[in-house]
Nucleic acid binder design. Structure first.
Lengths: 202, 202
DNA sequence: ATTTTGTTGAACAATTTTGTCAAACAATTT
DNA sequence: AAATTGTTTGACAAAATTGTTCAACAAAAT
């Protein structure tokens, strides 16, 4: 069953408003206006605002899961895998910078069991394999020795935080948009070199 | 002029709801109920919901600025300074885990010039000094060579992200509250050793 | 003690936002 | 072409939320 063009337009508009613009206070009217449609259509396709939110969140989480899967199951060298992970996270988040904030903020309000991950077990296996891989590399001395969970979360922190908190960081340090854009691109190499303890040429 | 006990109660309750619980959809009624007072009092002291939000945000940002100031201007060794920074950020954020998210989310809506930092120039000076200090340590080889701005933001990322995004991370990796609490405490030493490239005993 | 000032709560009004409905319209089928 | 089905629209109703007012009360000052 393929969804209607209007339904997809609504979802995409909502995604843009919530995940790109970060306007969590957007009303159904705001969404309808942005989509150039009548507000009643939102209710026609999604019944309530809440159900639209759930549908949008579902799409978001599925996307995140796909990313995670893509990274962990690929058959490439460890260094390449890390490199891919950095690129996928940073590029992905630049497309939808407010997605993670949205998930965290709406977390308590929405019933997240209804947006459970269909590939949950598959991903858990991939992640377990990735953990083992990390331990191997630590023994080899490629990366610093620490709990694999710390390593993964550190890696994600380095990629995601500067994008998630962009408005606050830009304001704190007084950085222009263009400069910050470049900063995030530079982060890709920077993180890689930090992880593998290579010196950075400046 | 000391503020009334009621006014302080309202501020503190709002802070708890927004910065600790992370319930951004809380109504004036919700806040009044949580504070055990009549809703009209909120309007009496703050006139509108928006002005209450601004007052709360002002308190939050002042607190953040104080932290930053405390760290950068202290006359201790570089390693100790980093150690303090990690502790202050992590402990501070555990008290108000949703504060940063709140600032980012409300950023576009609120007029942030009205909550401008009174110590702005002072902090900029301290930060500039800190940057120089970093460059020195990089030349000495204490820390990895990179742009000081990257170094600072990386440091903050490592501390803040696991707390800011806690609900999402816990869900993704299926971690219990108690375990995660410990994880964050362990992060303090972990980040320190990562920065100074000391090996971690596990 | 009385006036003044500040504080509180309940009821009310205004606004905003969501949700519902029936009629009009378009597309498809018979 | 008529009937059926699905889509779109504007108007309306309901609910939720904010903002206002007034009368009662308490505390402090004169």
């Amino acid at each position: 069953m393929k969804e209607s063009a209007t339904e997809e337009l609504i979802i995409n508009t909502a995604k843009h408003i919530f995940f790109f613009k970060g306007d969590y206070h957007a009303t159904t009217q705001d969404i309808a206006d942005a989509a150039g449609i009548n507000r009643a259509l939102i209710h026609y396709y999604f019944r309530t605002r809440e159900q639209l939110m759930e549908a949008v969140l579902k799409v978001a989480m599925t996307k995140m899961n796909e990313r995670l899967y893509l990274i962990t199951q690929s058959e490439v060298s460890f260094k390449e895998k890390i490199s891919n992970l950095i690129t996928i996270i940073i590029d992905g988040m630049m497309e939808t910078p407010y997605l993670e904030n949205f998930v965290v903020n709406e977390y308590n309000r929405l019933n997240l069991t209804c947006v459970a991950n269909p590939h949950k077990e598959l991903i858990e296996n991939c992640l377990a394999g990735f953990m083992t891989e990390m331990r191997d590399e630590m023994q080899k001395g490629t990366i610093q020795t620490m709990e694999p969970l710390h390593f993964v979360i550190n890696l994600v922190s380095l990629c995601a935080y500067p994008i998630s908190m962009r408005p606050m960081i830009q304001r704190t340090f007084g950085l222009e948009d263009e400069y910050y854009q470049q900063f995030i691109q530079d982060q890709k190499k920077n993180i890689y070199k930090m992880i593998f303890r290579e010196s950075v040429v400046s």
